[in-house]
Design a binder for these strands. Structure first.
Lengths: 158, 158
DNA sequence: GTTCTAATACGATATATTCGCATTGTTGAC
DNA sequence: GTCAACAATGCGAATATATCGTATTAGAAC
């Protein structure tokens, strides 16, 4: 990871320039949302969060900025099965660090867990190395999610 | 032609009746598609596959049947990131057995791999037990996917 | 066969996301 | 600082997957 990533705003925005994108207000504001929020945000969530203060930023621009941030590896795109994409800071930029997701099929609640992270890292590394050799894929990412019913939804018998 | 227990159409279709659904032609035809195909099919794929022979079966019915089959645990629903759901026979009914997916980000190709299946099973079991205790979730499923570039797409520099 | 009602086809609709294009704003050269 | 090039944007329209409403059809219990 380049040293300037993960420091204050002035450095954060360098991302854009570095990859040939212009540093616009919309892009600064949207990136800030991720640095100031721990949730898994949908495009609309972000639009609503910034709309009061920045009514000039359209939903289309939010989508376009998310696409860029995702391609640059700054944010990660997830699908928790509720029909819309959700985003969070990539784990190498995130205070939460590397983690996976536990999703409740009843209410959609998502728990970020990082228990047994060593075992997971070991597992993923082994599989990646194997797949890489066996199928000659250049592995760029993985997805580990568990589904189930949270205590509340279990009670309600959803 | 004699059918062995648990195999063959006569027993397959019993699924529907057992759960209070009527055994219609559409449902038989759609279930047969899964037993005769190893690919990961989208709703439209299935619709197109059967449309020549059974033009009376609508896309809506395909969607509704997939919903039922998924709820009954007969098929599994996957998202490989191409914007449409894809389905395959559940692993306990599938000749391929338990496996996970390796998806090429370039061309969308999906490889079913079952290498290191013991290590994976062990890993998943451990995590499930832990999450179940720690977060009091009743775990019902998991998702393990790896992403990367296949040899062809790597060459093309996609 | 008759009857009850689940299942269906069809068109309309919902919802997330992307596109086309005229306009605006950032940037680098001067 | 000014200016020109063109990237980025807003807006409305379009796309695409999936779902819904309703009149009609067909499965299955008798």
């Amino acid at each position: 990871m380049p040293y300037h990533l993960g420091f204050g705003p002035l450095h954060r925005y360098g991302f854009y320039k570095r990859y040939g994108f212009r540093t616009t207000q919309a892009r600064q504001v949207i990136l800030d949302v991720f640095y100031n929020c721990k949730e898994h945000l949908s495009a609309e969530d972000i639009y609503l969060k910034i709309h009061k203060k920045y009514p000039g930023i359209s939903l289309t621009t939010v989508y376009r900025t998310l696409e860029i941030l995702n391609r640059l590896g700054i944010i990660e795109k997830h699908d928790f099965g509720d029909g819309r994409a959700r985003y969070e800071l990539a784990h190498h930029l995130c205070k939460k660090g590397h983690h996976h997701h536990l999703v409740c099929s009843g209410c959609g609640k998502v728990i970020d867990y990082d228990d047994l992270v060593d075992k997971e890292t070991d597992f993923i590394k082994t599989i990646e190395e194997h797949l890489s050799k066996r199928y000659r894929f250049k592995i760029t990412g993985h997805l580990v999610q568990f589904f189930g019913m949270c205590p509340e939804c279990s009670k309600k018998g959803k």
